[in-house]
């Protein structure tokens, strides 16, 4: 399986993602934002970080960079595109997934482990993850998912919510919502479910001695689902 990780000026989780993808068997290439052509890929990842210093709105500048037109075409032709954290912010700015990510409700940068519940397994990202609840890491200032009521209705009708913030038993309640996101949304698909944007970082949970291994469950599932 071939993957590509796009590096924007200010990306800082690109190499973590590279390590994670390679660990689980992807042949990964790093792709510079100013390149026009995407290498042949089974998966494209927009990594976390602070592309363009979060100027104007997080992800807004990166969403207009040269490589993104190829990424958008790739996604529109059914290609798998995953945006993590800043990558999620870039995805919403391209319009590939609906909604926006606002400043966290309590104006704090949040950096901690959270639990997320998998809402949908009829997709190539979570299909073979046995657990219902995963422990992932979040680190963001703008992760407060917002969309209009019309958009929310469509999202729910199409079952586009990927993961919700919850407690360790999978209970989805306000008190387990770290940033004020509508319906505790932590990650969302496009309608066709080949594009996934999520705030948590699975690439930070791939080593027992460092953090945890729930990210490993995710990546193992992902590569198997793509085969």
């Amino acid at each position: 399986m071939k993957s590509s990780v796009i590096t924007f000026p200010g990306s800082n989780c690109d190499r973590d993602m590279d390590v994670a993808l390679k660990k689980f068997g992807f042949k990964n290439k790093m792709v510079w934002h100013a390149d026009a052509e995407l290498p042949k890929s089974d998966l494209v990842v927009l990594p976390g970080g602070f592309s363009y210093g979060d100027y104007l709105r997080c992800g807004s500048m990166a969403s207009k960079s040269k490589i993104m037109q190829s990424v958008i075409n790739f996604a529109n032709s059914g290609g798998m595109v995953m945006g993590i954290c800043n990558g999620f912010q870039i995805l919403v700015e391209t319009g590939l997934v609906p909604g926006v990510l606002l400043r966290n409700k309590y104006l704090e940068f949040i950096c901690k482990n959270v639990f997320v519940k998998i809402n949908d397994k009829q997709n190539k990202y979570f299909k073979n993850v046995n657990n219902e609840v995963l422990e992932f890491h979040i680190a963001h200032n703008e992760g407060n998912y917002f969309c209009t009521l019309d958009q929310l209705k469509k999202i729910e009708d199409n079952n586009q919510i990927a993961i919700n913030y919850c407690d360790e038993n999978g209970k989805i309640e306000d008190q387990f919502n770290p940033n004020g996101s509508i319906k505790n949304i932590a990650g969302i698909f496009n309608k066709e479910k080949n594009v996934l944007g999520m705030m948590p970082h699975p690439e930070r949970m791939i080593d027992k001695s460092l953090s945890g291994e729930d990210g490993s469950l995710f990546f193992k599932s992902l590569i198997n689902n793509l085969k």
């Binding site: 104007l56 807004s60 207009k64 700015e93 909604g99 926006v100 917002f146 969309c147 209009t148």
Partner: peptide, 8 residues
């Protein structure tokens, strides 16, 4: 196209 995000 850039300056505003019309969702919000």
């Amino acid at each position: 196209k850039l300056l505003a995000n019309l969702v919000i």
